[in-house]
Simulated scan of single mutants.
Amino acid sequence: MSACTDDVKAVTCTVKPPVYLHIGETKPDAAHSGICVVDVTLPFGKPASIEEITFKNYYTASVTVRLLRRGPGQEAPAKWCTALRDLPLMDNPHTERGSQDYCTIHRTQMKAEPDHVVSVRLILRQPSSAWLTFSIGDVKIFPRAEPDPEKEVSDWLSDLTLVDQHSDLEGLPDPQTVSSSIQQMWALTEVMQTNQTSASIGRFDVDGCYDINLLSLTSDETIWSWLLQMRSLMLSQANRRVNVGEEKEERKH
């Protein structure tokens, strides 16, 4: 079993007894018919998207997987499709190698998407007459895990960061410097808002160009106005950097 299903529980399903096919009016020994059908039904009204099908082989040479699928929200009857045809389970039908192995069929091996499945039919074949009987056991169906929305957002943000690092943005302020300055400005404005009369502003500079002690400020309201203007300037620079980056990426494509 692959690592992706280690933490996923198997779907509750019903595995019907194997049915051996035969030709002609007289029923021969079922073990020598060469074809066996095992139906696996899922709970009524609960179609599943399949990630893996696992089972233990018992002298079956090959398996074909057919799926009964129902489209989401469709009133039309479900339809059968062949998802995988004649997958070898034994190296040689006449020898025992692989005859009792645990097998896994992953959704990537299937030719049809195993989504909205209501029933699975496993068609087993054993052309050799060396074995008295053949079948499979311990059949389990594992559903496809739903993607984690938080992980998708995290991956999206990582992609944005990667694109931003490779963008040609010469002549614009360094993003780390702008971000740090905005954070400092935000902290100062919060201090002024909560305590406008007693807060000590101290020294604040941006790239060594501004010294609040050298400005002619006569009131807390003037300081508050100046801080708001500086914060708006920083945000404007950051937005300009993002917009320029997006325009250059569009021109590349």
Rank of each mutant, 00 (worst) to 15 (best):
T54A: 03
C209W: 11
M192W: 05
R69D: 00
C103M: 06
T26M: 12
H106E: 14
C209F: 12
N243A: 14
L214W: 04
M185R: 08
V38R: 05
R203H: 06
C81K: 08
D205S: 15
P149K: 06
D6F: 09
V178I: 15
H106G: 12
G24N: 07
L215F: 08
L214V: 07
R125D: 01
G208Y: 01
T104A: 14
T64I: 04
L228F: 04
L89T: 05
I105G: 00
H116K: 08
N92R: 07
G202E: 02
S180I: 09
R97V: 10
D159F: 13
L188E: 02
D115P: 06
I53P: 06
D86Y: 09
T41R: 09
S154G: 07
Q100V: 07
G24W: 00
L233R: 10
T222S: 13
E146C: 11
H94P: 04
G202L: 03
P88W: 00
E25G: 15
L84H: 05
P18W: 04
P17R: 09
R241I: 00
E250W: 11
P149A: 04
W156A: 15
R144Y: 01
Y20M: 07
L67V: 03
I201E: 00
N195T: 07
P173G: 04
I23S: 13
H94S: 14
K46V: 10
K140G: 00
F204Y: 13
A61P: 08
L87W: 12
G71K: 15
R251N: 08
W226M: 09
V242C: 08
T26Y: 03
V244H: 05
F44Y: 12
L124S: 05
Q183V: 04
I223P: 04
T14D: 11
V38I: 11
L188I: 13
S179E: 13
P47R: 05
Y58Q: 11
E249K: 15
V63A: 02
C13Q: 15
Q165F: 03
E249I: 05
R203S: 07
S180L: 10
D174H: 11
E249W: 06
L233K: 11
R66T: 04
K46M: 09
H253F: 08
S49G: 09
D164G: 13
T108G: 07
G171I: 05
P72Y: 00
V65A: 00
M234H: 10
A31D: 04
D174T: 07
P47V: 01
D101P: 06
H22A: 11
G98W: 00
A48N: 09
P43I: 08
